[in-house]
């Protein structure tokens, strides 16, 4: 009878590196076609910034799906809501955001991001309790109820804020761009990249280094087993749902500032993009979602420069190619 050594390390998981290299591959393939080095740098950095923004919006969605099999079609509404909350902060405090002081600019920006996250998290709580909870485990109803929620939320935003586009100017010190050699790099994109990377790093830390993260990862892999061990996965889920909604709001602010305008229809548009990203990444996988976001954004930027006509459908083509290669996405989550 063999003795099981409890102290022995688990066999190391093989890290699947191939999908993570795809953005690099895409950049290498695109580089010779673009030709000019400065254009290439500008496009690549713009793509990375856009990817970080998309990741911020999409990461919550993929975890919410992974944990409870809930596909939240109302996610887009949180993106719009976050953007509108930002207008409520940034427009009255225009004195701060347009002041010639980096400190005041960043303070007001952080305030806007914080307010958007808090409001979206709180609304996410209500949304989950009222709409999603009664239909746990019933896919068809879930899809329909969250769509209904998305419609109602979008229409309420129209009723509250009006159907017009609301201009949202960038804080003064984030306007303009650095010149690096011949390449122009917009300042705001760097800021957005930093926020996105911080979100990614934070998520990775929480998921990999805390008990809650362990439970979330275990729940994504096998919900019933975690429940059998006595953990209340629905409590965990509502936390993840609120965090996901808050991140959607955060991403909404970033996107609205990037576009410098706010409209309730932006949520539905970005919902499609986030769906594509999480399908490409593998439903439930945060790492896959990160790679997927970068891939989608890079290809959108390169295609927009090289073949503008194709850029409109580049996302779909990318999705088709990825699914041909890996039918369950780049990083498939087992049991799904």
């Amino acid at each position: 009878m063999s003795v099981i050594d409890a102290g022995a390390a688990l066999p190391r998981q093989r890290i699947d590196i191939l999908p993570a290299l795809t953005p690099l591959l895409v950049a290498l393939v695109a580089a010779p076609f673009i030709g000019s080095a400065s254009t290439f740098v500008t496009l690549t950095l713009a793509g990375l910034a856009m990817g970080m923004m998309i990741f911020t919006m999409a990461s919550g969605l993929t975890l919410v799906f992974g944990l409870m099999d809930v596909l939240n079609f109302g996610h887009g509404a949180f993106i719009s809501l976050g953007a509108y909350v930002a207008t409520l902060v940034l427009l009255p405090l225009a004195g701060w955001s347009q002041a010639d002081s980096l400190g005041a600019n960043l303070a007001v920006l952080l305030l806007a991001l914080l307010a958007a996250s808090l409001v979206c998290g709180a609304v996410g709580f209500v949304f989950e309790r009222v709409l999603v909870k009664p239909v746990y485990g019933q896919h068809l109803k879930q899809i329909m109820v969250t769509i209904g929620g998305a419609i109602v939320a979008e229409q309420l935003l129209y009723a509250l804020f009006g159907p017009e586009f609301i201009p949202l100017p960038l804080p003064a010190s984030l306007r303009g761009s650095f010149i690096l050699g011949n390449a122009a790099i917009e300042k705001y994109r760097i800021a957005a990249t930093i926020v996105g990377l911080a979100v990614f790093a934070g998520q990775m830390l929480i998921l990999n280094r805390t008990k809650i993260g362990l439970l979330i990862r275990a729940g994504v892999e096998n919900r019933e087993m975690v429940e059998a061990l006595g953990y209340r996965i629905d409590r965990l889920f509502i936390g993840v749902f609120m965090a996901g909604s808050a991140l959607a709001g955060l991403g909404g602010v970033l996107w609205a500032l990037y576009r410098e305008q706010v409209h309730a229809s932006m949520g539905a548009e970005l919902l499609v993009l986030t769906f594509i990203v999480i399908i490409i990444g593998g439903l439930g996988s945060v790492g896959g979602c990160f790679i997927g976001s970068i891939l989608v954004a890079l290809i959108a930027n390169y295609a927009g420069f090289l073949v503008p006509k194709l850029a409109l459908v580049s996302n779909i083509l990318l999705m088709v190619v990825v699914l041909l290669w890996r039918p369950r996405g780049l990083y498939p989550v087992s049991g799904r």
């Binding site: 329909m144 109820v145 929620g149 998305a150 979008e154 229409q155």
Partner: peptide, 14 residues
Amino acid sequence: RWLLWLGLMFILAV
């Protein structure tokens, strides 16, 4: 805002 009421009706129906 017709869609707003439609959405509400839809959720209630589901």
